[in-house]
Computed example of a mutant assay.
Amino acid sequence: MSTITVTTWSLRQTSPADLRPARGPVAGVRIVRAEVPSPEFSRFLYTAVGGDVRWTDRLGLGYEQWAALLAAPGVETWVAYENGTPAGYAELAAGADGAVEIVYFGLLPAFRGRRIGGHLLTCATARAWDLGERWPELSATRTVWLHTCSKDGPHAMGNYLRRGFTVFDTTVEREPDVLSPGPWPGALSRPLSQP
């Protein structure tokens, strides 16, 4: 199996004041919390968003494993919709000592480059900062962090930096060159027809 070199950057904010909001999105975009944990919906979002950027770490999980991850205290899924169609999502997870990770973040390929990503990241980061208000059994948020890598889209790092995240760690590793199947074969190359 061939391998590729992957650089991973960890980024963080240490205060809600670090967040620099994006301009508002195009008309018809809403960000909504998926309040009922749904392994089927979360797996759809994961494969649809991560298929072309090689997200594979959760592909082998069974239904019960997905359900357990989503039901953990402090785990939230925030979904961007454009005119009722899922366009992307962010998954938040509370960790120890008030650290909240934006575990997954991204847009379906057809919705990239349409001013949705900055708005979604702004909303997800703000929800990470006030996560403790919705989960009183958890510590108040003290830091919000995420990671991105050289496999991600070309605008990912710029979006994170423009929203006020700063790099605090960088690693370089070799890993198998595996492409996620996406939601189904051929789905990644189909353009979205515009209204």
Rank of each mutant, 00 (worst) to 15 (best):
H155R: 13
W66Y: 11
A67K: 07
T56C: 04
E64I: 02
P185M: 02
S15F: 06
N159K: 09
L11E: 01
A71I: 07
P37T: 06
G95V: 06
E101S: 15
R163G: 06
G118Y: 10
A48T: 04
T171C: 15
A96G: 12
T122P: 01
A96R: 14
D97M: 15
Y160A: 01
S180I: 01
A124W: 05
T5S: 14
P25D: 02
A71L: 02
M1K: 10
L138Q: 07
E137F: 05
F44S: 00
E91L: 14
W184S: 04
T141W: 00
I31T: 00
N83Q: 14
G51K: 01
R163I: 13
F165M: 11
P185H: 07
S193V: 11
W78H: 09
V178M: 05
G158E: 14
Y63G: 01
A187Q: 04
L188P: 04
A68S: 08
I4Q: 12
L19V: 10
G158A: 12
F41D: 07
G186K: 03
A67E: 00
G98F: 02
S189E: 10
P195D: 09
A87E: 00
S150H: 04
R174T: 14
M1Y: 13
G158F: 06
L45D: 03
E91D: 08
R58N: 01
G132A: 03
L192Y: 03
G62N: 06
W184K: 08
D57H: 07
F41L: 10
W145K: 14
L61E: 04
A87L: 04
H155V: 14
D177M: 06
R30N: 01
A96S: 11
V49M: 04
T122W: 00
A93S: 15
T143D: 06
I4S: 11
E137M: 12
D57F: 13
D57M: 10
Q13M: 15
E91F: 01
P176Q: 09
Y104P: 02
P181D: 06
R174V: 12
N159T: 14
R20H: 12
A110H: 09
L107H: 00
E133F: 12
R114D: 00
L188Q: 13
M1A: 10
L61H: 09
A94W: 02
R30L: 03
E101V: 12
G153T: 12
G182Q: 03
G88P: 02
C123W: 11
G118L: 05
G28F: 06
Y89C: 07
G158T: 07
D18E: 03
A48Q: 06
G60F: 05
S42A: 15
R112Q: 13
P109F: 03
Y89K: 10
G158V: 04
S139Q: 14
E137D: 14
E133N: 13
W66G: 00
G84M: 08
G88L: 09
T77P: 07
S139Y: 01
R162Y: 06
D169N: 15
L69A: 11
E137G: 09
A22V: 00
